[in-house]
Amino acid sequence: MNIKMYVNNEKIIAGMTMKDREELEQGNMALHVCLNTEYVLENRKKLATSLSSEIDNFVCANQTHSDHFHRVILEDKGRGAKTKDTVIPDTDALYTFEPNIILSSFTADCVPVFLYNNVNGLIGVVHSGWQGTIKEITPKLFNHLIEVENCNPGDFHVQIGAALSQEKFEVDEDVYVKFKNLGYANDFIYYKESTNKYHIDNQLTVKKQCELAGIPSDQITIDPTCTFLSPDGFSYREDKQAGRHLSFIMRKE
């Protein structure tokens, strides 16, 4: 199985499954876009085994490009792991203090954001497509963690996973204006006269959002892999029938 591992130490394991032509459905991990649910479940079981875990420890959400987040508790364990019927509804970010739970996020061009707090053990994962970015889901989550969960922003480490590159993320003026109106994304946008399109770096915009939330810049890492250009990437922009990467993070106990 093709897994891009971002963190693997005594406390945290986090990474992202990639397209793999040797696997069922090329390693697709999403039940909401698949040809055969059993193939996806086999892929998930294989991932769980590689993490020394079980499929029942996954927690999945029905992602709707919202700015909604959910604190995962022990009773949530297994939601969305084997069937769509049990997913956490209308949610694009998950966090938990619980160990041995695999928080999951599904992407095919959107930005996956992994976060972990070395002091109190909190972990989280965010699905930030361009709609989530302009709704500021990531900074809203951090503000909640700081204000409600009493986290210190300086204790967080953030990994921004593989996503659509600025070169391939071309948009019309309506989306450009939404990013411009954020007030801090202008440095991550360029205009291409030959196509009359704007190109936006969603990853760098999300990084800026993390910095504005108080996360130290040197504790934020970006994976430069473009899901469109890389043969290991699932890209909705390239292929509307594309499978999905699964971004995962788990705190070990």
Rank of each mutant, 00 (worst) to 15 (best):
L164H: 01
K178Y: 03
G132D: 12
Y116E: 04
K192L: 13
Q131S: 14
Y190K: 12
E193N: 14
H199C: 11
Y116T: 00
A163H: 12
V175N: 09
S128H: 04
A162F: 08
L182P: 04
V113D: 05
N118K: 15
I137G: 03
A162K: 04
N120G: 03
Y184F: 13
G124N: 05
P112V: 04
T133Y: 03
N181R: 11
G124V: 02
E193S: 08
V175C: 13
L145A: 00
N120R: 11
G129A: 09
I123E: 02
P139M: 10
Y116C: 07
K180N: 11
Y191S: 04
G132A: 12
V125Q: 04
L141M: 07
Q131F: 11
D187K: 15
D174K: 09
D155H: 11
I123L: 08
Y116V: 04
N150H: 14
K192T: 12
P153S: 10
N118T: 15
V126W: 03
I146T: 05
V171A: 10
V158Y: 00
I200L: 08
G161V: 02
Y190A: 13
L182S: 04
N181V: 02
Y198C: 02
K192V: 14
L182D: 00
V175P: 03
N143R: 15
V111Y: 03
A185N: 01
E170L: 08
I134P: 04
V148Y: 08
I123M: 01
V148L: 04
L122V: 06
D155G: 04
V119K: 15
W130D: 01
W130T: 03
N186D: 13
Q159D: 05
A163K: 08
V119N: 13
P139F: 12
K140Q: 13
V158P: 00
H199Q: 12
I189D: 00
N181A: 08
V113Y: 07
A163D: 06
Y198K: 06
S165M: 06
V171P: 00
E173P: 00
V171Q: 08
D187E: 15
F114T: 03
Y190C: 14
G183T: 10
I137Q: 00
Y184R: 03
E193C: 03
N186Y: 01
I146L: 03
Y191K: 07
Y116D: 01
Y176S: 02
A185S: 13
D174T: 08
K135R: 15
G129N: 09
E147K: 12
G121R: 05
S128W: 01
N152R: 06
K140W: 07
A162R: 06
F188H: 12
D172Q: 12
H127L: 06
C151K: 06
K140Y: 08
F142Y: 11
V171T: 06
L164V: 14
Y116A: 00
T138M: 07
T138N: 07
L164I: 14
A163R: 02
G129S: 15
P112G: 02
N152K: 11
K135P: 05
Q159V: 10
G132Y: 09
T195V: 08
K168M: 14
P139K: 14
Q203W: 02
H127T: 02
P139W: 07
I146H: 00
F169E: 04
K178Q: 15
K197Y: 11
E136S: 08
H157F: 14
G183C: 11
P153F: 09
Y184S: 07
K168E: 15
E149L: 09
N143P: 06
G129L: 01
K192H: 13
P153E: 10
V111M: 08
